[in-house]
């Protein structure tokens, strides 16, 4: 048995599939593609798949991954993309499969970019406002947790935002803590921004990849 990490992009209409639904899409695909994958051995056998770091609904994913176990150790992993893609909706494209080198628990950071726009403010105005927000020493946003809604301070993460110069809309990049231990949802930063502006901001978020604590790409 070989642990394999299948790499894919999630875009277009499929950005709006939730993680649970993505799981179902992938189950159907590996079943239909007849990949030599290990099935669970309970009452309802199904292909065993896991996702090291789920992607939030609405995000574009540039380098997403899914873990499976191959029964055939000699299976040519370079063929996986071509086998799976015909069975996937347009918005999900598999681009590779590699033997897993790191554990999901090794994930420590995720890199995002985002485009922000508003009905009322121009890109230039949004930029100015964001720069001012980044100077604040405290910035509380309500976060839903298991024990209810808590206010958390996201100012330290807002300071990490880099504004990409010379763009029509406001475009930013940011690398945030990620993984099972300490995960910061980028949307909290934008909620903070909306609260600061007291108006709606629309955003389009792309996750470019995940990294371990040394900032090496997750493999």
């Amino acid at each position: 048995m070989k642990n394999v990490r299948i790499w894919f992009k999630k875009d277009k209409e499929c950005r709006f599939i939730s993680h649970l639904d993505l799981n179902r899409v992938m189950l159907r695909t590996v079943y239909r593609a007849k990949l030599p994958i290990w099935y669970t051995e309970g009452f309802n056998p199904h292909p065993f798949i896991t996702f090291p770091l789920p992607l939030s609904l609405g995000f574009r994913g540039e380098a997403e991954c899914m873990d499976v176990r191959f029964l055939d150790e000699n299976f040519d992993l370079s063929t996986v993309a071509d086998i799976m893609n015909p069975f996937l909706p347009e918005g999900i494209r598999v681009y590779g499969a590699t033997e897993s080198k790191m554990k999901p628990g090794d994930i420590a950071f995720a890199k995002f970019s985002a485009r922000l726009y508003s009905d009322t403010l121009s890109a230039r105005e949004l930029k100015t406002e964001l720069c001012e927000l980044m100077l604040l020493d405290e910035c509380l946003v309500p976060k839903k947790t298991k024990s209810g809604i808590k206010d958390i301070d996201v100012s330290q993460y807002i300071k990490l935002i880099e504004i990409i110069p010379d763009t029509d809309d406001l475009e930013i990049t940011v690398t945030l803590p990620a993984g099972s231990a300490n995960n910061v949802n980028i949307q909290l930063l934008f909620t903070a921004f909306e609260n600061y502006l007291k108006s709606d901001v629309y955003y389009e978020i792309t996750r470019h990849g995940v990294f371990d604590k040394e900032m090496c790409p997750f493999e």
Binding site: K12, E13, C14, F16, I17, S18, D21, L57, G58, F87, L88, P89, E90, G91
Partner: peptide, 11 residues
């Protein structure tokens, strides 16, 4: 809720 219902793009 469930925006995937309104996007099309299914297999």
């Amino acid at each position: 809720q469930k925006p995937g219902k309104y996007t099309g793009g299914e297999l």
